[in-house]
Simulated scan of single mutants.
Amino acid sequence: MKAPIMEVFSSIQGEGKLIGRRQIFIRFAGCNLDCIYCDTPESKNAANGIEISIEELSKTVSHLLTPDFHSISFTGGEPLLQADFIKLFLERNDFKSMLETNGSLPSQIKKIAGLIDYASVDIKLPEHFASDNKGDLWEKEVDSLNILIEKGANSYCKVVVLPTTKVDTVELIAKHIKKELNLPSKVPLVIQPASPVDYWVKHSPKLFKMSEKAGKHMDVLTIPQIHKLLKVR
């Protein structure tokens, strides 16, 4: 079995709850969404990846292990397009794992949720797309989150905000997530200001308002992309 992979590298996690942890990132090529803020637009096209076998990937990962290694991060693109590949890789390799997903493929999450230790589900806003055709993406994101929680994955939601994002929109997202979760679990919401941080020089007060409003419903963290500030991958 092979999958289209753009790159495999060791770096510091710059987003979310595992920020600062040393991870080996496996970036898959190919995505089923087209977000306007994507920071790796080249990963949207599966043709940009190189077909790599599980054996080849395992060997590459083994060469990148360091004493401070914490976990594997499956990212993209959208890694769940390669759920069968990820499942087999994790069954053959005893690594802690993190899934970074847009949450649009709950049927694929079911295949690997029991093997995932940490998960970041990216909640999309209508403004994240050039067109207004979001369909039933919201329901799929919530389904994916519930599946991960039920299987024991340490999960959180992430919402990328732009200077144009309305404060009330972020509160509405937090309110709906809290309402739709099947389990009474404290799932954090990470508000991630879109890079570059220069966007926020004149808009930082809005970030406080977003946190305050969302904090009525969820445990909120506001975290920028630290790896961008450090200028590392």
Rank of each mutant, 00 (worst) to 15 (best):
V121E: 07
V121N: 08
I123W: 05
K124Q: 05
L125M: 14
P126T: 00
E127F: 01
S131C: 08
W138D: 12
W138G: 01
E139R: 07
E139I: 01
K140E: 04
K140F: 00
E141V: 14
D143T: 03
S144A: 06
N146R: 06
I149G: 06
K151N: 06
K151T: 04
A153T: 08
N154Q: 12
N154L: 03
N154T: 02
Y156F: 14
C157I: 14
V161W: 07
P163H: 09
P163I: 00
T165N: 11
T165G: 05
K166W: 04
V167F: 01
D168E: 15
D168R: 13
E171P: 09
E171G: 15
I173D: 10
A174L: 08
K175S: 01
H176P: 10
I177V: 01
K178M: 01
K179P: 06
K179M: 09
E180L: 03
E180G: 01
L181I: 15
N182T: 04
L183C: 13
K186T: 15
V187I: 15
P188T: 05
I191G: 03
I191N: 02
I191L: 05
P193D: 12
P193M: 04
P193S: 11
S195A: 12
P196K: 02
P196W: 04
V197A: 02
V197E: 10
D198W: 05
W200Q: 03
V201G: 05
V201D: 14
K202T: 11
K202R: 14
P205C: 12
F208R: 12
K209H: 08
K209N: 07
K209Y: 06
S211N: 11
K213C: 13
K213M: 09
G215P: 05
K216P: 01
K216D: 05
D219R: 00
D219M: 03
D219H: 02
T222F: 12
